[in-house]
């Protein structure tokens, strides 16, 4: 009778294991501990390249993410910030040059070139290629996908870190090399606390700092 029970358990466990593997198999590649989004790199509505803007063109992070020094959120730039440059810059340099070449060959004036990605930006603002508002266009904000996302039970303040001279790359990685942004660090509590301990020991940018290790500093 006991043997029978054990046999039953074994059978059920095996079935369970097979079932679990079958369910998990499809997602095994994406397996993470709960809350860990390391490596997350979602496709964005507009293929904005940090490598181009921050890497090649050397635009400061805080030009667009201007809340970083003053607010708890670094902020996603409003479309109006993009338009500071993209009112005039409508396509990549390469395609503009190519069009110039073609125009010279065909002995005509070069056409206005608008890249397909920037088209989406102008569409959001309901502007046509000439930067004029379209009569029946409805402006609609761009819905970016948030990459770095902390749980709701954690309070994180960008301005506290940026003003204490924590470099952006320390948490966000080498964004200036990324075509599409991905999450480099795991943003776990252990990772936060380790950094807080380290900087208390060795200082930050040559200055001693007092990074809090209180639970209540982030969880309240």
């Amino acid at each position: 009778m006991a043997d029978k029970g054990i046999r039953n358990v074994t059978a059920v466990l095996l079935i369970g294991a097979v079932f679990s593997v079958a369910t998990l198999a499809a997602r095994l590649g994406a397996f993470h501990l709960p809350g860990n989004n390391q490596g997350y790199s979602p496709e964005q509505p507009i293929a904005f390249s940090h490598r181009l803007h921050a890497g090649e063109l050397l635009i400061d992070c805080r030009y667009c993410h201007y809340g970083a020094e003053t607010s708890r959120h670094a902020g996603i730039p409003a479309s109006s910030v993009c338009m500071n440059c993209h009112t005039f810059v409508t396509d990549t340099l390469g395609s503009l040059r190519a069009e110039d070449e073609r125009a010279k060959e065909e002995e005509r004036k070069p056409n206005r070139m608008v890249s397909s990605e920037l088209q989406k930006l102008y569409g959001a603002l309901a502007l046509d290629d000439e930067m004029k508002p379209t009569p029946d266009g409805v402006p609609a904000p761009i819905e970016w996908i948030q990459v770095h996302n902390l749980p709701d039970f954690v309070y994180f303040n960008h301005s506290a870190h940026v003003t204490a001279n924590v470099a952006c790359e320390r948490c966000h990685g080498a964004v200036e090399t990324m075509e599409r942004v991905s999450q480099v660090e795991d943003l776990s509590m252990g990772w936060c606390v380790n950094c807080h301990r380290d900087v208390n020991r060795v200082g930050l940018a040559g200055r001693s700092v007092n990074a809090s290790l209180d639970c209540g500093a982030c969880h309240y």
């Binding site: 679990s20 369910t23 998990l24 997602r27 994406a30 397996f31 993470h32 501990l33 709960p34 809350g35 989004n37 997350y40 979602p42 902020g75 996603i76 730039p77 409003a78 479309s79 109006s80 910030v81 959001a124 603002l125 402006p139 609609a140 904000p141 761009i142 819905e143 970016w144 996908i145 948030q146 996302n149």
Partner: peptide, 17 residues
Amino acid sequence: TGCNRAPVERAIPYLIQ
């Protein structure tokens, strides 16, 4: 199997700040 990505969160900025 729930140990997967957090749900997709959107960040919607102003059009004109």
